[in-house]
């Protein structure tokens, strides 16, 4: 009898504490708006939005991607429609994904095809931080030329298209990395270099 009562009480206590836990989680979710997405919005909050192209319904914007071509050593522009907004960081992620996916006109992407864009942050001071999956470094056995092309295709694509971006920092799997393949110094932010863009 005594043990049965004790068992009932502890079962009730268990249910009660379970309910309390669920409530607590709900309250936390309510106030934080849920994980990662919120963090990104917070970072972007002070960045001016890209001007809407067309009316309220305009759901896409045109970006210029920088690819390489078989016949020369230059970067070549290619226009692409991507989904617009809500923030420039979201658009920047889509532009880089399109750059990795490759050209629609026979040009070549300078980034390893399996690379994923994990996140783009754009800070108030104009520094865009791009976080790639490890494939960006491990997908190619880079030489100086291919490494420079990979880095500057990313940097030029971001600075050329997004007004709030002045400089670009590259991360791999959320961490700083010395180089992608032993050549180009990733420890500093890159300014764009349009000197080898085909005219």
């Amino acid at each position: 009898m005594a043990t049965e009562k004790k068992g009932k009480i502890s079962r009730q206590a268990l249910i009660l504490s379970g309910l309390a836990l669920v409530l607590l989680v709900l309250v936390i979710i309510f106030f934080t708006g849920g994980g990662e997405e919120k963090v990104k919005r917070f970072v972007d909050a002070t960045v001016p939005k890209a001007p809407a192209t067309g009316g309220e319904q305009a759901a896409t914007r045109t970006v210029t991607l920088f690819f390489i071509a078989d016949g020369d050593d230059l970067l070549h522009k290619e226009m692409r429609e991507i989904a617009a907004g809500p923030t420039e960081a979201d658009e920047a992620e889509r532009a880089l994904a399109a750059l990795i996916e490759g050209s629609e006109k026979g040009l070549v992407s300078p980034l390893p095809p399996q690379t994923r864009v994990r996140q783009v942050f754009i800070a108030k001071d104009g520094v865009a931080t791009v976080d790639f999956s490890r494939d960006v470094a491990e997908g190619f056995a880079y030489g100086s030329s291919s490494e420079l092309a990979a880095v500057y295709a990313v940097v030029d694509t971001l600075v050329y298209n997004f007004k709030s971006v002045k400089k670009v920092v590259l991360l791999v799997e959320g961490a700083e990395r010395e180089t992608l393949g032993g050549h180009v110094d990733l420890s500093r932010a890159f300014f764009p270099d349009y000197s080898l863009v085909a005219r």
């Binding site: 390489i68 071509a69 078989d70 016949g71 020369d72 050593d73 070549v108 300078p110 190619f140 056995a141 880079y142 030489g143 100086s144 030329s145 291919s146 092309a149 050549h183």
Partner: peptide, 17 residues
């Protein structure tokens, strides 16, 4: 001292940085 690598097969020549 390095040997260069490019995605483009035809890329060739020497350069000093």
């Amino acid at each position: 001292i390095h040997a260069n690598g490019a995605v483009q097969r035809k890329a060739g020549g020497s350069e000093t940085f």
